[in-house]
Each structure stands twice: as structure tokens, then as C-alpha cells.
Nucleic acid binder design. Sequence first.
DNA 1: CGGGTTGTGGTCATACTGTTCACGGCCAAC
DNA 2: GTTGGCCGTGAACAGTATGACCACAACCCG
Lengths: 239, 239
Amino acid sequence: MSQRFDPIRVLIIEDDPITAEAHAAYLQRVPGYVSAGIAHTGQDAIRILRNVHQGAAPAIDLILLDMNLPDATGIELCRAMRAAGIDTDVIAVTAVRDAAVVRTAVALGIVQYLIKPFGFSAFAAKLTAFREYRALVGSGAVTDQRAVDATFAALRPTAISDLPKGMNADTLDLVLVALRRAQPRAVSAVELAADVDIARVTARRYLEFLVQTSLAERSSRYGTPGRPESEYRLREPAA
Amino acid sequence: MSQRFDPIRVLIIEDDPITAEAHAAYLQRVPGYVSAGIAHTGQDAIRILRNVHQGAAPAIDLILLDMNLPDATGIELCRAMRAAGIDTDVIAVTAVRDAAVVRTAVALGIVQYLIKPFGFSAFAAKLTAFREYRALVGSGAVTDQRAVDATFAALRPTAISDLPKGMNADTLDLVLVALRRAQPRAVSAVELAADVDIARVTARRYLEFLVQTSLAERSSRYGTPGRPESEYRLREPAA
DNA sequence: CGGGTTGTGGTCATACTGTTCACGGCCAAC
DNA sequence: GTTGGCCGTGAACAGTATGACCACAACCCG
């Protein structure tokens, strides 16, 4: 039970040394966590975890796992861990934005999914939620459905990633959904405004924001009288 | 993408035949789900799943897994599945109330944990949450951290253990009644405040709380100048 | 080839709402 | 009777969509 007050030992699995160091630095700033090592390849990671599993090294409570490793994907590594009977909790830390990967990650028991690049607040939010979860699940008995629900609820993501001033999350969602619905075709600001029933200016502001964050791309549409129309298209999540 | 509207095919793994039948009956009552078979032992289950995995049988989208099987624990079965590359989502349905089991279940990617005995509403709540999750993760692209957070949030219950400080049960009741009276229509904080005769600020605080506990949902009302108005609607308790 | 036409890109002030904060009334405990 | 905390309120502040307005760039016609 003192487990709850001991620091949570974290293994960082990340091929890029600079990024790995950055994560370790972030980790130091979150109370209750300490780094338990860094692995730069899947092989490394497996070796370390196997040692730990056999009691040859101090336990590891959490893994920060990059999905792109030189010798394996994070999914493969995770599957191998589970097959070996290693049930360590995993937080995915990755630039991969593929829904299928997210789905598989969930099925393999990944408790949080953090998309790169991220700031310290997003990082801290995920780790804080995990600490809460750990306190609940480590506290001994599960009495009833409410207790289990509370445990699962601790893993619920809370922090809305901060948008720039002047933007509303709901509206952004609306625009994104409309863009996705139009999918292969590109839409102009006017068309989108009519579709979603917001003003043209507003539509344009959000579309321009999506271009800036490289989630959408802009091109010009010629052929009609008048100033050329800008059209926007959702950018495919890089394969 | 039609996948979202096809029924979700469920394999029930449960050794007691009567209980298994009861679960199947419950399943029929939840829209969007169909039973895809019943397995009474771990061996059975593995055999069925292997067939499916090799394409010899129609796909299975979800497993209701009992933790106590004659020839294996649910944990062992789940581990074996993951090792075999079967990433089907799993909901644990069990009388086991051990925190360690819950923790391991989470690590192995179990998406919901339902404690026996349970009534239909608890059952339906878990399956509805899963359907929502599936719609989100199956909708194609993951755009950003917010989208991933929404996906994870669909799987995590919002346990309301206590009323947060600053809230009064009576006032909450008042708001709920007013929302129910307005039923199909959505009301803004201003409208509700006038209706119940409380301050706008107070109304908004309670409405926001209801959204957080996913008892109500919020959308934005556009068309007029000024900041968009949030409107709130009672969420259907799983039809 | 150049000016007129046309329709959108971009900016601004405005209006209306969400959000915050300190105050004060009400109730319970001592 | 006094004290302290709880919770709703009003007002001030911040946020955000809108409509109006001007500038701009391509088509079109003389």
C-alpha cells in the first residue's frame, strides 16, 4: 500500500535520443514520477523488460512508447510484451494519427494516447490522470460497479488541448466534420459556411487555422468571374 | 464506412448456459447488436476466434468475456488472444471483484468491466458507450489530440460519486426537471434561467455539470451576432 | 490591350454570450 | 447569539460570431 506514495518508475521507449531526453526532462517536472531508463529500439526494450520481469532489475510501472521504432512498430512491441506475460501499463507517445492504430492500441491495453508534438501541460495531464488511476486500482478492494467505474473514469481524458484565443472547440469540430463529409472534394469557405450554417468569415477563420496547423490544405479555384475562390481540402493523415 | 451502421457482432464467452442465454437476450434488446455465438469454455472460444481470424467465419466485433471459465481464467484467455494477434475488443462480464484483476484487464485492453449481477440498464449503458466508441474510431481519420481524447472518453464512464462542491441537489433537480419538460427541444442557459427563476450563471453551472457527466449534451446555436449561444439537451437514456 | 464587372479575400467595429469574482443571505453547529 | 461555511447572485471582464466595408484578382467586352 506504500506503493501509492512511491514514485512511479517509467521506461521511455523512443528512438530519437533528443526526443527521449526531452521526455525524460518533462517527466522530472511531474511530481511522483521518475525515469527508470531509456530504450532506443524494440530489442533494447524487450531486453530491459525481460530482466525486470525476472526480478533482475527494479520494477517498472509505466512505459512511454513511441509507435515508430527502427526495428518494430509500437503495436508489435506491445503485442510481444503481452504475449510474454508483461502487463505493464503503456502510454502511447507518437505522431501517428491513424484511427486503426488508435483502435489497436486500445485493444492492446494502452491507457493513454498522446499525439506529438505536445506541450508540457498535455503531457502532465495524461500522467496525472494515470497517477490517479493507479492510486485507485492499487488501493485494494473493488467493492462494486461504482468503484470499477470510478477506476475507469480516472483514465478519462480531461484536458482539452488549448486552442488559440478566438476559437471555439465546438465550431472547430463542426468545420472538421463538414470537411470530412466532403472528403475527396474540396470546398470553398462560402460553401462550407452554407453547409454548416455559420457566417462566411467564421468559416474562413477556422479553415485558415486548419491550414496553419497543416491539417488541411488550400488551393485556388479558377474559371468563374470574380476573384479566384480558395478551396480547402482535408489533408490525408500521412500514411 | 458502412461498418458504422451494420450491427456489431458479439461473441459471448460464459460457461453457465443459463447465464449465457440471459446475456444473449439482453443483447437483443440493445439496438445495433447481434449475437454471433456462444462459447462455454476457453478452448471453444479460442477455436471460434481462430476460425474467424483466418477468415473461415464472419468477423466478430466484440467479446463478452466471463473471467471464470472451467479451463482458464479470462485473463489467460485474453492474453492468449493478444498473443495470437487477435485484437477484438473485449468487455469483461464477471463477478470477480479483485483490484488486481481489474488492473490486469485494463492492461490487456479490456474496454469495459461489468460486475455481476447487473440489470439491463447497466448492461445497456456499457454497450451504448462501446457503440459510441466504435463510431468514433471507425469514422476514418484521427485529426488531432482532441479527436483521440474524445475517442478515449467514450470508453470511460463519468462516475458521479459525489456532487462537487458548490452544487445543491435540489437545484440540480430543478434544472433536470426543466430540461425534461423542454424535452425534444434544446434550451439555452438564459432560457432555462428564466424558466426556473434562477440566475443565468447558476443555470449554466449546473447545465455544464450535466454535460460533464454525459447526462446532457451541448451544441452551439449560430446565426445571430455575438458569441455563439450554447444550447443544452437531455441525453436519451439509451433507448 | 485596357477598363469595367463580378464575386470573393481580408479587416473592423459591434453585439451578445460565456466566465470569473467577490459579496451577501441562509442554515447549521456550538 | 455568534460563527463559519455553503451556495446563489450581480456586475465586470473576456471571448467569439456577425455584418458591413474596402481591396483585390480574374473574367469579359469593347
